[in-house]
């Protein structure tokens, strides 16, 4: 991962109450680790291990320690840290930088920031923010729905009926997350969260009707801001030799942002109520998560019966 200080400052102004003290021209410096370091040990002269690729936060402890030293010593200790080419320094509790700190920042061209937060809170919030800003993200073609807590992405060629199926599901009381284009982001726990593009959020296009605003038509219960992706359902036109799953014991797999998800390939044919089938697939998936795999259990029962008969 890597993130420029400029990006961190822009996104951190509100969330981290971050402001720049010095170093406007050096905001292209890059942070390569999302954790934040408190340089207390390094200030005492211990450099056998020093997380120099991280942002360094000066809190109350660091300040109190530095103030216990005379100016020459303070300059010497601080120089040791600057020599390690750290990406940037943040001062907590909105303190003014000590003169030595400011001078060294200018000498080594390392930006100096300030936050109103106390150190521990800043460390938590900034780690979260950096994680968010550097999370892998992408945009995939497909309509995202939430069915009883299961995040379902509907995929398929244009005109196959994704939006129409989604509409039927919304009428049944499930929620729309995104129509046709879904933004995805992988969080630090490896979950893939799906949400809609800011601009087109909660709108969908129904062929022959045009663009509709879902919450206006169906109420706020019909929408959800984001949902965790659980399974992908692909609609395809019915072919007799299609390689679709017949038992559900080994569903297909699809990767989204390098995370594997079960993929169900559903043939669409006249008279098939797709909403009903997508609903069944989602509920069956929920059952599997709860540890009840109907297909597997039936298979085990069948095998068990056959083994007894074969042995007899």
């Amino acid at each position: 991962m890597s993130i420029k200080l400029k990006e961190l400052l822009e996104n951190g102004r509100d969330r981290l109450s971050l402001e720049l003290i010095w170093g406007e021209e050096h905001l292209n410096r890059v942070v390569e680790e999302k954790a934040i370091n408190r340089p207390g040990l390094a200030l005492t002269g211990f450099f056998q291990y020093f997380a120099q690729r991280r942002l360094q936060v000066f809190g109350l402890a660091e300040f109190t320690y530095l103030k216990s030293l005379d100016s020459a010593e303070r300059e010497l200790r601080l120089r040791g840290i600057f020599e390690k080419n750290i990406p940037g320094i943040i001062i907590a509790r909105n303190r003014n930088p000590l003169p030595e700190l400011r001078a060294l920042a200018e000498e080594y061209c390392i930006p100096l920031f300030r936050t109103a937060m106390i150190t521990s809170r800043f460390i938590n919030e900034s780690t979260l923010l950096i994680e968010e800003l550097t999370a892998p993200r992408g945009r995939i073609q497909g309509t995202m729905l939430e069915i009883m807590g299961i995040g379902v992405l509907l995929q398929g060629k244009a005109g196959i009926g994704k939006s129409e199926t989604a509409l039927s599901l919304i009428e049944r009381g499930y929620s729309l997350v995104a129509d046709d284009v879904t933004e995805v982001v992988r969080d630090s726990r490896g979950r893939v969260m799906a949400y809609a593009n800011e601009l087109t959020r909660y709108h969908m296009e129904i062929r022959g009707v045009g663009i509709v605003h879902v919450p206006s038509l169906f109420g706020v219960a019909a929408i959800r801001r984001e949902s965790e992706l659980d399974l992908v359902i692909e609609l395809h036109s019915y072919k007799n030799d299609a390689d679709e799953e017949r038992t559900g014991i080994t569903p297909g797999e699809i990767e989204v942002l390098d995370v594997k998800f079960p993929l169900y390939s559903l043939p669409v044919s006249p008279g098939r109520d797709m909403a009903n089938i997508v609903e069944a697939a989602a509920l069956n998936h929920k059952l599997k998560i709860l540890g009840h795999d109907a297909a597997k259990e039936l298979d085990e029962k069948v095998i068990d019966t056959f083994l007894r008969k074969a042995g007899a």
């Binding site: 014991i249 298979d299 074969a310």
Partner: peptide, 19 residues
Amino acid sequence: NQYGIHARPAALLVKAAGK
């Protein structure tokens, strides 16, 4: 086969027959 016509062989038969 040892396990007889359980789900997997059944799926193979259905797919073959469906053609």
